[in-house]
Each structure stands twice: as C-alpha cells, then as structure tokens.
Design a binder for these strands. Structure first.
Lengths: 270, 270
DNA sequence: CTCCGGCCTCACGCGACGTGAGGGTCAAGC
DNA sequence: GCTTGACCCTCACGTCGCGTGAGGCCGGAG
C-alpha cells in the first residue's frame, strides 16, 4: 500500500484510478478500449494504459450517455459528431424507454392477475364477481375451492387459465353456469330421476362447464356433488334454485359415477 | 403448398404447426428441446419432431409463464413441480418488475432533462428560474444562447453538464452570478478603469463563473461582452445593476482580450 | 530480494434465441 | 417416376456489455 497518490502521476491515470474516479469497472475501460470507443492517449513502456485529462473528459461523457441508456454504438456516434441530430436520438431513446415501461407495466399486471388468482382464487373484484355470477354468488367459494385443492398442480393449471381469461370470457362462463342452473332446476321440476339418461346428460354438461373452469375428473365431480349438499352455502344456493336440487344433484352425480365404474363412496379429490 | 392439414396428423404436430398455433418461433421450440425444457414425445423416422396433445399442454404453460417474464430455468422449476411455492416466485418476479420500472422511470427522467436542456437551454421551469436567478432573470436568455451556439459540440457538452446538475448546484451557480453582478456594480461605482488589474481580475472571475455554466473561451467572452451591450434585454439587466455597467464590462473584456493578444474586433464565437 | 497489489492479454460465459449454411423429407402435380 | 417447393433437420456463430477467471508481467516498499 502507499502507492503514489493520483495527483503526482500528472501524465495520466491508470485504469484503477479512473475506475475509482468515474465509478466504472476496469473491465469496462478495457472493453471500451478494445472496441475503440475510448482509448487512452498514452501507454507506459510496460503497456499500462494512461488516461489524460482529455481522455477523462471523453470517458465522463460516455458515462453520462451510458446512464441515459444509450448503447455504445450510439454513444460513439454522439461523441464522434457523426450524429448530427442528438436531440432526435434522445427523443427516440425516450420513446423506447416509454415503450419498455409500458411493456413492463403489462407484465406486472399479468403477474398481479396470476398472484390474485393464487391468493383469492379469482381475479375479479367482489363487485365484478357479483355482476357476472349474479347476486346469489358467494365470494368465498373460490377461496374454499382453493382450500380443497391446496398447492396441487391442478390448482396451478386452473390459476394459469383463470389468469389468462378476459372478463368477456368470464361472462361466457357465467352464462353457461346460469343456463346449467336453470336446466338443473327444470329437471327437478320435471321429475327427472337420478341415473336416468336425462340426468346423466346434465351431469356431463356440468362436468363440461366446470371443466372449462377447472380440470374436473369424475371423481372430483362426486366430491363436488357431496360438497354442494353438505355445505350450507352451496346447499342454500342450489336449493334456492329449486327445493331439493342439492340432494338431487348429489344423487345424480353418484349414479353417473357408478355407471362409469366409480364407487362414489370412496371417491377423492385429486 | 397444399400440405396435409393439421387435423389429419393426429399423431402429433410438427414444429411449424405448433409455431403457428402457439405463436412461438420454430427456433424457440428447437431451443426448448435442446435444453430439455420441452421435448416432443415423438419423432418421425426422418427425425421430424412431433408434439402430442400432452406436449402442447406443456408448451402452452411455458408460453404463459414466459409472457410473465420468468426465465426458462424458473419455468422449468414451476412445470416440474420442484418449486413448491409458486406464488412466492411470482411475487419475487413482480418485485423485480417493479424495480425495473423504477429504474426505467429514472432513466426517462434523465432523458427528459437532457432533452429539455437541448430544447430550451435549461432544465428548470420558468418559476424555478425566477426563484434561482432572481426576478430580473429573462427566461429567453438560454434560448438565445442556444441560437448562437447552434448544434456545436460546445453546446452538447454544456447540455450534458446542465442536465446532470442538481437544483442545489444551480443555486450555487446563481449565487456566484449574483455575487459577481454585485462585484461588477461595485467596481463601476468605485471608478475601476477597464484594463486595470482590478478590472482584469473581474473579467477572469466572470470567465470562471460562466465557464462552469458553459465552456467559455476568451474570444467567446468578447462576443458575450458585445452582446451584453448591444442586446436591449441584457443591457437593461446590467445597466439596472449600475448605470453604464454594460458598456464598462464590454470595454473591460476588450481590454483584457487585447492584453492576451486577441483583437476584440475580429473575435468570433466558437 | 521478496512481496504484494496492480496491471496486462487472452478467452470463455451469460440468456434466449436469430440467422444463415448445407442438406434431407414430404406430398402434390405432371 | 420425377420435379418442385415448402418444410424439416443439425450444426454453429452472433447478439450486448461486460463478468470472471487464468496465467503472467511490473513497480514500489520493506
């Protein structure tokens, strides 16, 4: 330690000294030398780079423009005067920055949506949910579904799909759900028997509709049917459409499952 | 043209078909295959990649996460389930995006400052200018200076320095200018003669103060002195400090220039 | 003379592909 | 059966601005 202080090397500064003064890495100085952007005016006999005051001035200008995000070619053009219209170049750069900010904002919004789906099960606000799914909708349902699913791959895939759906697509799903609810109510009223062809068709339709919502196996559908009947919130909703619907639906799903070789009493989520 | 339509290749889709469906480049598919992120389940005898429905599902998930800005390693972790906590990864990514937006905003602000300096000669608003330089300040001056300088390298360098100056530094310059103005007024009152040692010192001080403002040669200073006297705006300002100051200053600069071997009658800008 | 910190010149690595080069494959039309 | 033209394959280098060693020379202090 105790090398000669900077000031006494009046001929020029070495890379390390310049690095400290301008807060750039030594490697960057080497690079700028390599590509001819900023070469030192002097070298010692041993080949050490020595930057003069004039060199420092140029380096400083490079640092300024680099902090503005210009790439080295554009900086070279500016410093060498071949860019007649510097303000135009700056404005172009400004536009590019604005674009990149925009892109990042969209990206952030996408991430927010995905995060929201993972946290709350839906990306819509409570108001939007009510507007789409109707006043009967219980905002707790998605969260409850999430409790069931936990951190399974199934849930991940649901989240991915949910996050990439537009509000219009949500509306389409909500319409399909409403249609289905009506059809189920009509079936109960018409006395359709669980296990009948008609009931099985409705069960399949339910699986399709909610399959667009999340990946739904027959086993899972059985569990869902039982939840509809057992959970007060769900039961109230379905019985509100038509008295006895919750139970009718559970029995229909069970029958359909049995028809597909599944024992509804041992079915599990997953 | 007239290749077999996609649907008939029920075994799987070729790279081109997948490329069209998922809007990714063929090269990206090759790359993902190379690094083992998404390899096709099948190959034809000729070595053509064939992506099955399952492959497509995985590819689709990759596209989703890629659009969220995750790098391929993280996507791999998510898809292969080795990332237990996907929401945490998403939030980390979100934070990174926010940071990058911040950085870009600062960068944009820097560009705006630089552009403002190039367009109007100063980066301060008219109010800030008045607050710093006092009520006598004429907001047109920097623009007028720009007219003179045009698009020279000199002006570029001035702009760079101006853009990287903080308001505090501007205040320091304004203080120095005010001090100088007072000193010039005092000199006129004290009857200091142009060409005297005292006058020369003041001329030098003027050159230093404005040298911090923009690079000022002695020749340019001569032109500036003449402008102070000839331009009604400038003249009013200086004569307002002390009657006759504009003329006194022009004569002092001329004398100082002559003392340095410059003919003030042939001096030019630049 | 030795030591240690600084300097030098290669030269690979990064991240996610783009962009040819050079050559095989496939279905259709003649 | 042959040509044609779109499509596919595998290398392999280029991108952008350096980071990060490896291996070795230089220079001043003790």
């Amino acid at each position: 330690m105790g090398r000669m202080p900077d000031a006494t090397l009046a001929e020029g500064l070495t890379v390390g000294q310049v690095s400290a003064r301008l807060d750039v890495t030594v490697r960057a100085l080497h690079h700028w030398d390599d590509i001819g952007l900023a070469r030192p005016s002097l070298r010692t006999r041993a080949g050490y780079r020595l930057y003069t005051a004039g060199d420092l001035e140029r380096l400083h200008r490079i640092v300024v423009y680099r902090e503005l995000g210009l790439d080295l070619d554009r900086i070279r053009a500016v410093l060498d005067g071949s860019t007649v219209d510097l303000p135009a170049a700056l404005r172009a750069q400004r536009a590019q920055v604005a674009q990149r900010i925009d892109r990042l904002r969209q990206l952030g919004a996408g991430l927010d949506r995905m995060i929201a789906v993972h946290e709350r099960g839906l990306l819509l606000t409570v108001e939007q949910q009510a507007a789409i799914f109707g006043p009967e909708w219980n905002p707790d349902w998605p969260a409850r579904a999430r409790q069931r699913y936990g951190d399974t791959t199934q849930w991940q895939q649901y989240a991915e799909r949910a996050a990439s759906r537009s509000p219009e697509e949500w509306q389409a799903i909500a319409d399909a759900v409403a249609d289905l609810d009506r059809a189920l109510g009509d079936a109960v009223e018409a006395g359709v028997a669980p296990g009948s062809a008609e009931a099985n068709r409705l069960v399949e339709r339910h699986r399709e509709v909610f399959g667009a919502y999340f990946p739904l196996t027959r086993q899972m559908q059985v569990c869902l049917g039982r939840m509809y009947e057992a959970d007060p919130g769900f039961a109230a909703h379905y019985d509100g459409i038509r008295a006895g619907l919750a139970t009718w639906f559970r029995r229909s799903v069970d029958a359909s499952a049995r028809a597909h070789g599944i024992d509804p009493d041992t079915a599990t989520w997953q």
